[in-house]
């Protein structure tokens, strides 16, 4: 195992973590402000990816595709919020889980109906294809590096939005006391729609970025959604900072676990058995991490009880 390979895996872990943050930020924001658990967040990720693939296919422009992913996911989010989600804020979590599960069925089958069952492909733009040589002679795909930077930039932008703008103040106030900010003259239902659309746009953006590395297909959102759940459980539900730390932790643990565990078991057993045991355990590692965090802190790293 060389140091170059290791650093490459660390970067891959960072890339996964940053993408998970884009998903988890929306989820945790929606939960923090509206108290809603949204299983359909993965569908919005999928909507973003499909919108990007369709626009890229029609125009050939990756930039337009990214903008389409943001617009489509935000629009889908706003429509769903007004039609369905709005009725769920006062309900218990069970109703929320089921209604958003129903939305997943509708979104997934609807997308399959429009685009068919075959995966679509989103090409990496020519400027970003090929490797880039990092200091130390590490060759790393330019596109993945761009994803990391884009994700970090969005995280920074989100931080500024929440801490420095009027909307951010309203969002934070909404988290603290819903009735009070409604009494102070903020149109709470408009704010909710906005927050939901914002979360949706982040998910759609992540879907489009990842869609260029993997294929764009129905059902792509749910595995990511569940990873994002693990992230916010670890970070503490409602905390954006927790989502960021949790996302990086999960991204690193998953990537490095898959990379290191088979070798680690190779020290103790024969190589083929080590690969089996190592990869089986690596796929469970983040859940073990989650269980450990919960043993120590049942409300997550940055959660409040």
């Amino acid at each position: 195992m060389s140091a170059v390979l290791f650093i490459e895996q660390v970067l891959n872990g960072l890339q996964l973590g940053v993408m998970l943050f884009l998903m988890a930020a929306g989820l945790t924001l929606i939960f923090g402000v509206m108290g809603l658990i949204n299983l359909a967040h993965g569908s919005l990720y999928m909507v973003g990816a499909f919108a990007a693939a369709a626009v890229a296919g029609a125009t050939g422009s990756f930039l337009l595709a990214l903008m389409a992913s943001l617009a489509a996911a935000a629009a889908a989010g706003a429509v769903v919020e007004v039609l369905v989600i709005r009725r769920l804020y006062a309900r218990d979590h069970l109703d929320q889980v089921l209604a958003t599960f129903a939305l997943i069925l509708i979104f997934s089958e609807g997308t399959r109906w429009i685009f068919g069952s075959f995966p679509l492909f989103l090409d990496i733009p020519a400027v970003l294809s090929g490797p880039v040589t990092l200091p130390g002679g590490i060759a790393y795909p330019k596109y993945r590096l761009a994803i990391i930077l884009a994700g970090l930039a969005v995280a920074g932008g989100l931080y500024l939005l929440i801490t420095r703008t009027r909307i951010g103040i309203q969002i934070r106030a909404g988290e603290a006391d819903r009735e009070m900010i409604a009494a102070l003259g903020v149109d709470i239902s408009k704010l909710y729609t906005l927050v939901f659309a914002l979360g949706a746009a982040l998910a759609g953006f992540a879907g489009a970025l990842v869609g260029a590395i993997q294929s764009v297909q129905v059902g792509m959102g749910e595995p990511v959604l569940i990873l994002a759940f693990v992230v916010i459980v670890i970070g503490g539900i409602g905390s954006i900072k927790g989502a960021f730390v949790g996302a990086l932790l999960v991204g690193m643990t998953d990537t490095l676990g898959r990379f290191l565990l088979p070798g680690l078991f190779g020290l103790m057993m024969d190589p083929s058995a080590a690969t089996t045991v190592g990869s089986a355990l690596a796929s469970m590692l983040i859940y073990v991490l989650m269980a450990l965090v919960l043993l120590v802190r049942p409300t997550g790293l940055y959660g409040t009880a």
Binding site: V230, V233, I237, T276, S283, M284, L294, G300
Partner: peptide
């Protein structure tokens, strides 16, 4: 509450991935 929902979901995934990779 919502933590319980997500954690049980995550344990389900843990068994799912274990069954796939074993």
């Amino acid at each position: 509450g919502v933590y319980f929902i997500m954690i049980t979901l995550a344990f389900g995934q843990m068994f799912f991935y274990f069954a796939i990779s074993w």
